[in-house]
Design a protein around this nucleic acid. Structure first.
Lengths: 186, 186
DNA sequence: AGAATAGTTCAAGAAAAAATGAACTCGATG
DNA sequence: CATCGAGTTCATTTTTTCTTGAACTATTCT
């Protein structure tokens, strides 16, 4: 179970989609406008709530308010972040399907676009980041039953009851996820 | 809007409840048993998912598997954490109503017990930690509308649409909370 | 094949968050 | 009203997490 982002980032990655970007898009501006900065800020905050690094929020925010797909370099330059952060941030965002790559004619570089549909975003996040934790928790709970066996009887009874609650919680949480997805489905 | 836990901890605190603990409870053991360590570990992990400090998970975990209310000192000693962490951890947990204080006859010290009902726990967490973020987000979004006004028309149209999505998200998220609470109500 | 381009990796440095503990507050006690 | 006990505060230290950038890999171009 990955404990921090860097570890988690060393995971798999989805392949490029076949969607076409706008091949006529000219060279992007060199600077971010106030609106863009503000939108980015919102996503940086959101990232912090979710326990993600600032750079991830920045990248997603930038793509969220960009009218055209952006390249690796553009993202790096506009946000003034390092190659490493750009690479890792994009990787993470692609893993959770918050960002997709699109093919742009006559250009070798990857072009990135934000997934705008809330449902897909949440689904990716829940699938990649929440579910694994819940499943791991379930395992640990099961292992715990064994330890419980050689526990003084008075104590054991109460502990067993409380472990039961934990199981229920875990099950509920997992049952909740599909429901949440349905609810937020636009 | 508090950015880290230490800041947030400098908040209000609910008062002691009138529930009675067991006044006959003898002196607690000096060491934690394997089961207890394991339960605590589960809560430490959970704390990490939620972006809370380890110590908070430890304290809640300890109280979760304790048969009797514990005092400040006992918590500190059993977990081998500092006075400061104990104080702040307990404060946070009381703020979100994950822990309550109970009165124990003839003993001046506070005695702490874990809230075992999932619903109350989640409610506290959502109310104290999630809602404020969502509300703040809504404000920022509203402010953003103004910035949008002096934006080039072609761009403006698309951005307005996307800001609209954000509003919808926010509203949905806030609408989701009561529903989640109902779902997890045992 | 060799050079150039595009992106990845990861050790090391920087920044942020959490833990510590000494000084402090506040109420109870003699 | 001075002292003690119980807990809080917050500047400092420690730990954790994020960012950086140089070295590396893979792919395209000539």
């Amino acid at each position: 179970m990955p404990k921090n982002l860097q570890q988690e980032l060393r995971g798999s990655m989805p392949s490029t989609l076949g969607i076409k970007g706008n091949p006529n898009a000219g060279p992007k501006t060199q600077f971010l406008e106030p609106i863009e900065l503000e939108v980015i800020h919102i996503f940086v905050q959101a990232a912090q709530i979710l326990g993600l690094p600032k750079s991830v929020g920045e990248i997603y925010g930038l793509l969220y308010c960009s009218l055209d797909p952006l390249t690796f370099d553009e993202i790096m330059r506009l946000l003034k972040i390092s190659k490493g952060s750009t690479s890792q941030g994009l990787r993470f965002l692609r893993n959770i399907r918050a960002v997709n790559t699109v093919y742009v004619e006559g250009n070798r570089r990857d072009h990135f676009v934000a997934e705008l549909r809330l449902r897909n975003l949440s689904a990716g996040f829940l699938r990649e980041r929440i579910m694994p934790h819940l499943e791991n928790g379930e395992e640990r709970l099961t292992d715990l039953q064994k330890l419980l066996e050689d526990s003084p009887p008075e104590k054991r009874k109460i502990l067993e009851e409380r472990m039961g609650y934990l199981h229920t919680w875990n099950k509920k949480a997992r049952g909740l996820l599909p429901w949440v997805l349905k609810f937020i489905d636009t």
